[in-house]
Design a protein around this nucleic acid. Structure first.
Length: 496
RNA sequence: GGUCCUGUGGCCGAGUGGCUAGGCAGAGCUCUGCAAAAGCUCGUACAGCGGUUCGAAUCCGCUCGGGACCUCCA
């Protein structure tokens, strides 16, 4: 198997050969959702991208530990230092306990991800479950002179960090520029420097989510949880850290600084950032009001939607672009994706009915054999090139042409030989189902199907064609369905 | 304003120096009771201008569009 996987590392901006720190083990951390409201389609895109990355790494034989956190505390509604905790705010609005908010949206998130047929991560830690570890790390940073306490809050001292390290290396920012660009005067600022960020925030009396700490009652800062949980479950240095582009700065930059500050080493070998889903060219986001909820997409119940699109159609649509490119949402593109997806699924169905057993010998078609083998290789090449799912799908469609050719008799299994046929079958099925994580989505209605048969049954009965009647009745019975001739009409029931 | 990304045929979307991307839509052919599916063939796309090169969608410069981040955000 071709295993020269290359990943575009956002830290270096280069495509690099993937060499795990402890082969065959791979540690991957992805920033999960903040569970204060429903995930929207843009959020979903990122998690789908990493799901494919997770799947492909496993397919290559790596033992992957995939950690994706649930952020259930800490992100403030307003910028800077003031404002409410998002979850606390939602809890007040809906008169719920914060953990009820967290529970509800965590469940929703899991349901949505299951509908998209993604694999659960290996570990899904929550921020509130790691308050102690966060406090410990803050203490370590204070000891090292990289953090300071003011009025019950603790801030990371970027200037102190900058003496020995490089704050901004991930996002390509320069301290001076950051300083000159900080817009506003956020009132009674406790921070020594506007670029300093909170590790711990003092909780005002009305703040619901609060924990005791050496600095009084408060709550952890926004970036600390990932640093702490990444280290706890994947070690001081691990292979991959991912998330959406919009987390690169400040979130990941701060995470990086915290880790380097605390342990002196870079925490992550490969940073992967996924690009945004756009609507009419603009980033989909809650604050812009152009986001769709998965449910709205599945039902078609949204002003911008012409009709409903299924989870797999949506997933296929997203996988047809590369994770690092923006992807623009449109009804036309979704409609095209629906047809493409179904075509691929029909290929799966066709393939299921084909077998190389008992195939008669024929003169080998070397050209076809060579084409099929290189298409199989190309699937690996494409995925090895920074997880290029779009290109992979292109190759799969080419492979599908060969499959269909066999199906329609243009090409025979004998001509390509069982070895090539088996490889084609395995490659197609594996990439569609296991690597891309697509699944067959039946839109066939069971009741509708039976009613078609019942009509035929009724006609046979009227024509007194009792052989046909018995055939239908026995056939259905074999499937666990019994027909009942009622005075009012024909009905069916499950066999008891 | 700063930093960075991007502009591909009717639509979506890969591709980063020479080799068919692919899907959707469209045209023709084959197959066909009807219909569908499928196979084959086709359209000579790379924002504009200039440059480098034997050769550029791909590299460089300029111009014009679009976007992201700089603030919570996948």
């Amino acid at each position: 198997m071709l295993k020269d996987l290359r990943i575009n590392n956002s830290l270096t901006g280069k495509k690099e050969l993937f060499e795990p720190i402890h082969t065959p083990h791979v540690g991957m951390y992805v920033c999960g959702p903040t569970v204060y409201s429903d995930v929207h389609l843009g959020n979903v895109r990122t998690f789908l991208s990493f799901d494919v990355i997770f799947r492909y790494l496993m397919h290559l034989g790596y033992k992957v530990r995939y950690v994706r956190n649930i952020t259930d505390v800490g992100h403030l509604v307003n910028d800077g230092d003031e404002g409410e905790d998002k979850i606390g705010k939602k809890a007040k609005l809906e008169n719920l306990e914060p953990m009820e908010v967290v529970q509800r949206y965590t469940q929703d998130f899991h349901q949505v991800m299951a509908m998209f047929n993604t694999l659960p991560p290996s570990i899904e830690p929550s921020a509130t479950g790691h308050i102690l570890e966060q406090i410990e790390m803050i203490e370590l940073l204070i000891d090292k002179g990289l953090a300071y306490e003011v009025g019950g809050s603790v801030y990371f001292d970027v200037n102190a960090y900058q003496k020995d390290h490089n704050y901004g290396k991930l996002s390509g920012r320069k301290i001076e520029e950051l300083l000159s660009n900080t817009r506003d005067l956020d009132g009674q600022d406790e921070k020594r420097n506007p670029v300093d960020f909170a590790l711990w925030k003092n909780a005002s009396p009305e703040h619901i989510m609060r924990w005791n700490s050496p600095w009084g009652a408060g709550f952890p800062g926004w970036h600390l949880e990932c640093t702490v949980m990444g280290k706890k479950y994947l070690g001081q240095t691990f292979d991959i850290h991912g998330g959406g582009m919009d987390l690169k700065f400040p979130h990941h930059e701060c995470e990086l600084a915290q880790s380097v500050g605390a342990h002196g080493t870079d925490p992550v070998k490969y940073w992967i950032h996924t690009n945004m889903l756009t609507v009419n060219g603009q980033k989909m986001s809650k604050s812009l009001g152009n986001s769709f909820l998965p449910r709205e997409l599945f039902t078609g119940d949204h002003p911008l939607l012409d009709k409903a699109y299924s989870p797999m159609t949506t997933k296929f649509f997203m996988l047809q672009s590369h994770y690092a490119s923006t992807l623009d949402f449109s009804n036309e593109a979704l409609g095209a994706a629906q047809k493409g997806y179904r075509k691929l699924m029909n290929g799966l169905k066709t393939l299921r009915g084909m077998s190389a057993d008992g195939v008669s010998e024929a003169e080998l078609n070397e050209k076809a054999i060579q084409q099929i083998n290189s298409l199989c290789d190309n699937c690996y090449r494409a995925m090895n090139d920074d997880f290029n799912t779009a290109l992979t799908i292109g190759h799969l469609f080419n492979l599908l042409k060969k499959i269909n050719s066999i199906h329609t008799g243009v090409l025979s299994i004998g001509e390509i030989g069982t070895e090539t046929f088996d490889r084609m079958k395995l490659t197609f099925e594996t990439f569609v189902l296991n690597v891309l994580g697509l699944k067959e989505e039946s839109n066939v209605d069971f009741d509708g199907l039976i009613s078609v048969l019942l009509n035929v049954y009724k006609e046979a009965k009227e024509a007194k064609d009792y052989d046909k009647v018995d055939e239908i009745r026995n056939g259905l019975k074999a499937q666990g369905v019994v027909l009942k001739d009622m005075k009012t009409g024909i009905d069916w029931a499950y066999e008891e």
